[in-house]
């Protein structure tokens, strides 16, 4: 598995890593910065991580996926720092013999990453900024 926190996520790096002769399907999810949230225009996002724990939690998810499904290769890359509208911030990739596993495992990994991995994003609008999910 390839699990990293990086300044810029690299789609080519992820796709290259996912190459495997036993794979019949490669699924890639790319999360990007959207230009709006809660009816407001988003200017940028800033990501912060508790790096050692974030990597540990990402590795746990990768291991859980590998135990549950027959996965040939798995990638989880997450960016930290400032990201502008349209830029990629997270890449999840799974290579497997068949597409069902690739789709399912990819979805599991991004959904669980959002729940447990200690990474935080602050959304900047024209007039203010908020930590996403901080308040009910």
């Amino acid at each position: 598995m390839l699990v990293k926190l990086v300044t810029d996520v690299d789609l080519n790096e992820a796709y290259s890593y996912l190459q495997h002769p036993g794979a019949g399907g490669i699924d890639l999810f790319v999360g990007t910065v959207r230009n709006h949230a809660q009816g407001k225009e988003v200017v940028k996002l800033v990501f912060e991580a508790y790096a050692p724990m974030a990597l540990k939690e990402m590795q746990k998810l990768a291991q859980a996926a590998q135990q549950q499904w027959p996965i040939e290769k798995l990638v989880m890359l997450h960016a930290v720092g400032e990201k502008l509208v349209g830029e990629p911030v997270v890449i999840i990739g799974v290579a497997s013999a068949h597409r069902d596993v690739a789709f399912t495992a990819c979805r599991f990994l991004i959904d669980e990453l959002k729940k447990t991995v200690p990474i935080w994003k602050k959304e900047y609008y024209q007039d203010n900024s908020v930590w996403v999910n901080a308040h009910p």
Partner: peptide, 10 residues
Amino acid sequence: VALIPPVSGG
């Protein structure tokens, strides 16, 4: 020891 407020990665 670290405080972990609601996470929002991805």
